[in-house]
Amino acid sequence: MIGHTERIWLMLIGLTLLGALLGEKGHAGWLLTLTVAILLVLKGGIVVDHYMEMRSANQRIRNILRLFVVLIPILVIFVHNWGEDIRRLTTLN
């Protein structure tokens, strides 16, 4: 029987295979980075909301977890676009 949890699991599997396909094709650049960031938000959000049942949980816990799955993709885009600035900021000499 395909229930809610099964649909969520299938969605996660589908998004994972999409990511793997992108990796195998070896595409690079801005579009790949943006796609990966979107996949991260989607998959992370699904695990947080449905696997961990955070939709109705304590707001502080939910916000920290949601912040984590949104902040990392933002940093992925940031490093792609402003890698040179980060390199300069993190050079000691």
Partner: peptide, 8 residues
């Protein structure tokens, strides 16, 4: 997973 297998 994307850090090491997908992103370039």
């Amino acid at each position: 997973f994307p850090f090491f297998y997908i992103l370039r």
